[in-house]
């Protein structure tokens, strides 16, 4: 018996539930239905991972509907890497299609914002597991740069790895937040927001999230670009709102460790704070 044939037949069973091709490999044909243990284990592992990675989606649609959708997602987008950490990269697009009936031909009531909620769930997860920042720009760095006569506006900065920007519909974030905190949307103080860019970041091990104002969004998007400087970021913000207070937002960025810069450009590593 060639191992290739055995694996091909086993994989066919796992994908389809059709065990006919496994008969040649099973000692006792009556036991072939026991292979369901492996197939059930495969689906359970994947669906449990999706449940863990998209908790607010599950909360919105309920456990049974979520698991039905997740089961079909596994068929369409099986895991490719040998880990389920981060599994569900395509889930937000899929789940919107699922609930609009595009996947199953059984149109179901499309929960409002379901794709956006999935985006937000995944952005939260991505921020949680992102790399730790090793070149955080801190207040003492800024003070040193100014004292040494560097033009702060020209300092190259980038967003810390845990900063994730997420475009969603106007009410999605407040809905996501209300699901996460078990509070009604109107208790969040964000329900009237028209912002469509949500920023996630990690501080002291915990993921933070807030919706951004229009100039804040312009600033963050500008800082996402390669070779961005504080000047280019602030210019983008002031372009959409000439009254925008850049010093306040800069302080907030420093406090929340949102920015990185390579201080070795300005002084030797041995002399770093």
């Amino acid at each position: 018996m060639a191992v290739d044939d055995y694996i091909a037949a086993f994989a066919h069973y796992l994908r389809t539930g059709d065990a006919n091709r496994m008969h040649d490999f099973c000692v006792n044909p009556e036991h072939i239905k026991r292979m369901a243990v492996y197939r059930n284990g495969f689906y359970k592992g994947c669906i449990d991972a999706l449940s863990a990675n998209f908790p607010m989606c599950e909360k919105l649609v309920g456990n049974e509907s979520f698991r039905n959708a997740a089961h079909i997602y596994v068929d369409h987008y099986p895991p490719e890497k040998g880990t389920l950490v981060g599994y569900g990269q395509n889930f937000s697009g899929f789940i919107a299609d699922f609930f609009s009936g595009l996947v199953t031909n059984e149109s179901q009531a499309l929960p409002v914002n379901i794709a956006d909620l999935a985006h937000l769930d995944y952005a939260w997860l991505t921020s949680l597991m992102s790399a730790d920042s090793e070149q955080v720009l801190r207040g003492e760095h800024v003070a040193w740069l100014v004292a040494q006569g560097h033009d702060l506006a020209l300092v190259e900065v980038r967003l810390s790895p845990s900063v994730i920007l997420c475009d969603v519909g106007a009410s999605a974030f407040s809905q996501w937040l209300s699901l996460k905190t078990n509070q009604k949307e109107d208790e969040q103080g964000n329900s009237a927001s028209t912002n469509d860019l949500v920023m996630f970041w990690r501080r002291q091990g915990a993921v933070q999230a807030r919706s951004l104002s229009v100039p804040e969004a312009a600033l963050m998007r500008a800082l996402q670009r390669v070779d961005s400087t504080l000047d280019s970021g602030f210019a983008a913000a002031l372009e959409v709102d000439p009254d925008f207070d850049v010093s306040d937002i800069f302080s907030a960025c420093l406090q929340n460790e949102l920015l990185e810069t390579d201080m070795t450009q300005y002084r030797p590593e041995s002399d770093l704070i």
């Binding site: 055995y6 492996y38 284990g41 592992g45 895991p79």
Partner: peptide, 13 residues
């Protein structure tokens, strides 16, 4: 197999 990860521990022959 074939770029898919079947997240369980399947026995070998």
């Amino acid at each position: 197999v074939d770029g898919r990860y079947f997240a369980d521990l399947m026995p070998l022959p």
